[in-house]
């Protein structure tokens, strides 16, 4: 049965209208920019920007640093996505257990990374990763391990960033999973118990399928979020050392906001957009099967 146009309009209209003005039009504008050579000189006098077709994209294709940023970003995604998902789910399930004490205290703890001001927490993390005075290597030292130089070693810097990224996202995704878990009717578990299912089977055959909408949401958001990796390397390393932590958005930011090459930066945004949307559609398609 089709819903009447009136109700569709009432329910979706306001959101769409606002999104149109404050998101879709600006995005469209920035896509148009990608076809121009909008740079330093055009910022005050817009007439100086010229339409140059796909030249920015051609340049981008031959841009060594862009490819580096591309690989770095995927490296981050490929590790941070599964790690965060598994750990967040684990913690959510444990938090949701009936016999878990001090639930509220745990939840507050998990909430902390999410509320803490980015600049301040970045300073704390650069201290944690400090090879000589930092907490990380101090803790490793207690186990007799000599920690690497983290942020100043091209081999380890990205991993350090990933640790920070996972840390920032973990509590938040745990709370999302928790909300999803609470939506699963208890009756289903009771029914499974009657059928003689053990805890693992209940998790596999009740929790996971029922949690699917949440999982789809969480992983999709992670794909979108991690491909836009920016703040963490911006704060901790500015993309160094040896561009080992240069991410796509950091490169975009550099080109657009530091070098004022907004045309070129927009072409990076377009490529990133296509990348994200294809992965998102893929993810949503997968969830349907």
């Amino acid at each position: 049965m089709k819903t009447s146009k009136f109700w569709v309009f009432v329910f979706v209209g306001p959101s769409l209208f606002l999104l149109l003005i404050f998101s879709i039009v600006p995005i469209f504008a920035s896509f148009l920019l990608s076809l121009t050579n909008f740079n330093v000189y055009a910022l005050v006098d817009w007439s100086r920007a010229r339409f140059i077709g796909l030249e920015n994209f051609r340049d981008l294709f031959h841009d060594e640093l862009f490819w580096k940023a591309f690989l770095n970003t995927f490296y981050c995604l490929s590790i941070a996505l599964p790690v965060t998902t598994v750990l967040a789910l684990l913690n959510a399930v444990l938090l949701n257990r009936k016999d878990t004490r001090m639930k509220n205290l745990f939840k507050v703890c998990f909430f902390l990374p999410f509320v803490t001001n980015t600049v301040a927490i970045a300073i704390v993390w650069s201290w944690i990763f400090n090879p000589r005075y930092g907490l990380m290597n101090w803790v490793l030292g207690l186990f007799g391990i000599r920690g690497p130089q983290w942020l100043s070693d091209p081999k380890w810097a990205m991993l350090a960033i990933i640790v920070f990224v996972v840390w920032r996202g973990l509590g938040y995704n745990t709370l999302l999973f928790l909300a999803g878990l609470q939506n699963i009717p208890q009756e289903l578990y009771e029914a499974a118990e009657l059928d003689g299912a053990n805890a693992w089977q209940k998790f596999l055959y009740v929790t996971l399928p029922m949690l699917r909408p949440t999982t789809v949401f969480v992983t999709t958001m992670m794909i979108i979020g991690y491909l836009q990796l920016f703040e963490e390397p911006y704060m901790l390393t500015q993309g160094g050392p040896m561009n080992a932590t240069l991410s796509i958005v950091l490169y975009l930011y550099r080109q657009g906001f530091k070098f004022f090459k907004l045309g070129y930066a927009s072409s990076i945004a377009v490529v990133l957009f296509l990348l994200i949307i294809s992965l998102t559609v893929l993810r949503l398609k997968l969830s349907r099967e």
């Binding site: 999104l19 998101s23 995005i27 958005v249 657009g256 990133l272």
Partner: peptide
Amino acid sequence: VLATIMVPGQMTLIPV
């Protein structure tokens, strides 16, 4: 709707 979060905020700051 989903597509609107796929462009980094830096890019839309000036148009907005």
